[in-house]
Design a protein around this nucleic acid. Structure first.
Lengths: 104, 104
DNA sequence: TGCCTATTTGGGCAAACCGCCAAATAGAGT
DNA sequence: ACTCTATTTGGCGGTTTGCCCAAATAGGCA
């Protein structure tokens, strides 16, 4: 895997890694419903607020969500709903696995 | 994030993590063209064969690829092409990021 | 200015990941 | 049985992740 190829797959992996965490997938799913601020997400998730803030930073750096400061809070929302394809992909793989299991 | 929800997102993340590596994305892309054995993939990738074998194991455990021993070699192929949605998803995100950058 | 709430940043610690090497295993072919 | 090739497994060192806590920062509002 050389040159252009390598860079291309590293770029894909960079985004991919940002998606590879249960909490971050949950955040994406929530932000698909509506925008939320850090505090609201923290309450839903039930982790330390600094932890949630870091997850949000990772998603933001990957260009998956964007933030907007309004009043006292920072609101996050999806930058592009195209990321929801991810859920279809993952769900398909899981369903496919289940079917294989049952077929045995 | 409690109970069922938590388990659901952890399951999604489990698959997602298997996808979150440049070499593994490359392997998936290659196996979409045709099946390959470990040695062939190793030559294309240019890493130690044990490293490649481990990547393949990770993908196999996630139910993304399957192996089949034939003759002297172990051949791997995609279990379900649905995983290719992943590339659409990642590519969309990357393109979307580029567009935002250019718009500035 | 000073206080208060919301958020981010830095650090420490444990766990997971990655790559290589060396050794073990599996099976084909002689 | 022996040899040779292909693959997997075990393990070590280095890097990255993820979590919490504590401290720093930012901005609204009296």
């Amino acid at each position: 895997m050389i040159g252009l190829d390598k860079r291309k797959y590293e770029e894909l992996a960079r985004i991919s890694k940002a998606l590879a965490h249960a909490t971050r997938l949950y955040i994406i799913h929530k932000l698909d419903e509506q925008e939320y601020c850090v505090k609201e997400l923290t309450e839903m998730i039930g982790a330390d607020i600094s932890t949630v803030s870091k997850h949000l930073t990772i998603l933001k750096n990957a260009g998956i969500i964007i933030d907007e400061k309004r009043g006292n809070c920072v609101y996050y929302k999806l930058q592009c709903r195209c990321v929801l394809l991810m859920f279809d992909c993952l769900t398909n793989v899981i369903d496919s696995n289940k079917n294989k299991m049952n077929a045995i």
